[in-house]
Design a protein around this nucleic acid. Structure first.
Lengths: 266, 266
DNA sequence: CGGCTTGCTTCCACCCAGTGGCAATACCAT
DNA sequence: ATGGTATTGCCACTGGGTGGAAGCAAGCCG
């Protein structure tokens, strides 16, 4: 299935490179981009397909990455991300400083609640999960470290959005507020109102807006200049009538922890 | 001054590329390799120097990486590892599965002891720290997540080494057992004896062999086929006469936790 | 202030590393 | 055996990569 190969275009097939303006680096990085949570291990042809590169090119680049340690070859011939890339990624500052500063507070929250504790930063139009503490007693969430969450349907997302530039809000609403559950806020106006509330109280809530059966409270971690650096949140079991009471009980704890992190990571 | 064009050297000097056999990919990866714990942010010239690339080449590659998101440019013009690399590194399997399985156990150990808890895997001739839980009450160690520890002078290192192939032991001793403190084992014979003991008891100790004032207990996390997948360890304060007693008290806990991790990550 | 150093950016002529089609080989399932 | 699919290897051709040099922008100092 060569797909739409178009040899009609003058027999100048000559071209060795099929897509000119593309640099080697871009191709190499395209190979890395093939891997994601849903595809942690890929075969040569899968990489070629997903990256849009010819098989031979993909092969060469993969070989180069393997030699370096960025990819590893499995016994079945497939490839996966290697430890070298992980080690280098470790140096990313968002996670280095913040994580270190936040972990003690996250542990405290965890010990007190035994629920999911999440630390997220803003990345593009989503919240990126930097760290998460969980246990089998906590609500199962689909979030993992390195995973992404929508800004409009989660506590941490709203905390980030509320304290970000207005342009972000516009971009997010314009892209459409995806409905995750019947409780998801999908009207820009209602979202704006919720965010105003967040700015006033310093705490963001989410009641089954992302996952049925789960509620969350989150607070922003602000830098000195007033920008948001991250958001810290708890995702807890939704317990029918007691929801609001539970959240109100947790809110001060989360807020305090977030302030502590902000201070100790200045 | 510059100026002296020297065409004497066989005009094939022409070559634009100074180091032929080197591929673009290698150069690109060399740029990434410039960054490490001691150098989390680098200027253009620093990258050029450390990678051995001409400034203009380094600049182009850096630009490419920035556009992709692998590097970020700081206000002062320097560069640092970007979040994209971190996200991709997150997919590395060693840390993905293991970490998830180990964290609950690590939390338990931490709650019980309030000391440093470390999870490491074997990488090359060193132990690579995958996860660490710490607090200000614990002994300050220079280990960070993504950092490396010597195999012969740490509890986790010995646990890994004891259950690895003999070749690794030979390679490590041949390279020389670096003395970290007066207590470090630097004689291959004594190390071999210690490792035999570890194999028998299933637990590895280290008494101020890496850091003065710190002792550690560690246990291997074995896979079904008998290979070591990782090692779990505690680094605790050394309290004079009580050392041995402390360790003996911690050992069963560590061992049990390691077995638990092995089972739940099968 | 003007000369001096250091570091970043831009430019471009030259040419070697990269390319990708193709064929051979390996590996399955039938 | 047989057909289909994935991986490996090859190699003629060329466009992306190269790095020296010159142009800027800042900071330093006598």
């Amino acid at each position: 299935m060569a797909g739409q190969r178009q040899p009609d275009e003058s027999e100048n097939v000559a071209g060795r490179t099929k897509v000119p303006g593309q640099t080697v680096s871009r191709r190499l990085l395209a190979v890395l981009d093939c891997f994601d949570v849903a595809h942690p291990a890929l075969s040569l042809t899968e990489v070629a397909t997903r990256s849009g590169l010819p098989v031979s090119t993909a092969r060469r680049l993969i070989g180069e990455l393997c030699k370096w340690g960025g990819l590893e070859r499995l016994d079945d011939g497939r490839y996966r991300i290697g430890i070298r890339l992980w080690t280098i990624g470790t140096l990313a500052p968002q996670q280095r400083g913040l994580r270190e500063a936040a972990l003690p507070y996250m542990h405290d929250l965890f010990q007190a609640t035994q629920e999911n504790i999440q630390l997220t930063v803003l990345d593009g139009h989503e919240a990126l999960c930097i760290e998460k503490i969980s246990s089998d007693k906590a609500v199962p969430t689909q979030t993992r470290i390195g995973g992404r969450l929508p800004l409009h349907a989660t506590g941490v997302g709203k905390a980030l959005l509320a304290f970000s530039a207005r342009e972000l809000f516009d971009a997010v609403t314009e892209a459409g507020l995806a409905r995750m559950t019947p409780h998801t806020i999908i009207q820009p106006g209602r979202l704006a109102a919720a965010l105003a509330e967040v700015r006033k109280s310093g705490v963001a809530y989410s009641c089954e807006e992302m996952t049925l059966g789960a509620v969350s409270v989150a607070a922003p971690i602000l830098s000195l200049d007033g920008g948001v650096r991250a958001a810290l949140g708890i995702v807890a079991h939704s317990r029918a009538a007691a929801d609001r009471a539970t959240l109100d009980r947790l809110a001060p704890a989360v807020r305090t922890a977030a302030l502590g992190v902000a201070r100790s990571s200045n």
